[in-house]
Design a protein around this nucleic acid. Structure first.
Lengths: 211, 211
DNA sequence: TACTGTGAATGTGTTCACAGCC
DNA sequence: GGCTGTGAACACATTCACAGTA
């Protein structure tokens, strides 16, 4: 009844729920909050409250229907609309990312790969042809690209970000070894692999002892 | 006084502070909480309280000494002890990561690269020779490795994680297109590039409009 | 009995607001 | 005046605890 907006903390757990549901035996039809909570080492009431925000209805004494859960969580995460991705910078890393199966296996569609090097433009990478970033404006619009992967050398990275944001790309994954800024007036949040890694390392080293 | 433990939320902001300080003009000697807050679009009191946890002392009317801030934040993150990293799985992605300058530029030392393919073992990658994962136990101990990058095919990934954790590696960065589990009895937190990306995309698409 | 749904209590992080020093 | 240091107020997330339903 007049449910509040979904909290960020809940949203950040949704991918975990999805993974967890994916691991259940295929013949299992319902799952209880307690089961999920145990698998993720979190509190069962938290799971129930998270599902309550999503308006996932469970049955008392039984649990939640797995199928419905998956589709409602997926919808809340926007996974019902497939996300389209481009990679800018076709050096070693960009090339590897283009071949990386992880994107496809998570439902991301790789729509284009770009580089400014005339020696690379025209080369094929899988189904795609490497093109000049001048084509980004048109491609982003026509393919409705929402995620940009920046794998250029450091000096070029900020310019690429500015361009992507200007074109309406709402997520940037930065692999360039440089700090990037969101252009003024935008609220783009950045996630940077190595930074996340360091945070992780801290929390863990902190667990054995200090602080 | 008798300062409480540093909150997780504070720790997660420390890398941002570090980046932000890194962007200041080289001749600037002090910085105010307001300046940092504006650059990161957060509240100035939050910045001051974060620094207070770290026992960073500022001067009223002046601000914080940049040099001291950098070294104290770095120490809190454990960056004063260089972190050592290994990559397991030398396919396209592992190979690219081994050549990726981002690790080195962030002070991470790549100590070893591994693959089970006899055709790859013995090949050199930069300064390193690809070796069989059987050597991990010795290398992890002798080089004090704290971070493992998993870039194997999906079926091999869980075994690699189990091995790394058993050997005492406290951080795992997973590039394999599969959900991994922390072995029972461990509190390893996992970060997975694509998951972070999806969360990011959600927050942003949520800002333009839908509830 | 097994489980959900949810108000209330608790715990934690953020922001305010202002006293105190440069 | 500019800026820090910090208690107090507030906002938010987590957990408890239990009524309610299959």
């Amino acid at each position: 009844m007049a449910r509040p907006a979904i909290p960020h903390t809940t949203v950040s757990r949704l991918p975990l729920y999805l993974r967890c549901l994916d691991q259940l035996p295929v013949d299992q039809e319902t799952v209880s909050s307690g089961e999920i909570a145990a698998a993720l080492s979190i509190n069962a009431a938290k799971v129930r409250k998270d599902f309550w925000y999503l308006e996932c209805e469970g049955r008392r004494g039984v649990g939640y229907d797995i199928q419905s859960l998956v589709s409602q969580i997926g919808a809340a995460l926007g996974l019902d609309v497939p996300l389209t991705i481009v990679i800018v910078g076709m050096g070693n890393l960009g090339m590897a990312l283009a071949h990386y199966q992880g994107f496809a296996s998570r439902g991301l569609i790789l729509a284009g790969v770009y580089d400014t090097d005339p020696g690379k433009i025209g080369e094929t990478v899988g189904d795609l042809v490497i093109r000049h970033p001048d084509n980004l404006a048109e491609d982003v619009r026509s393919r409705e690209v929402s995620i940009g992967v920046v794998a250029t050398p450091a000096p070029a990275a900020q310019g690429v970000v500015d361009l992507l944001v200007k074109l309406g790309v709402t997520s940037i994954l930065n692999f360039a070894p440089v700090v990037l800024h969101a252009p003024a007036g935008t609220t783009l949040r950045r996630v940077d692999v190595a930074t996340e890694l360091l945070i992780l390392g801290y929390h863990q080293s902190n667990q054995d002892g200090r602080g």
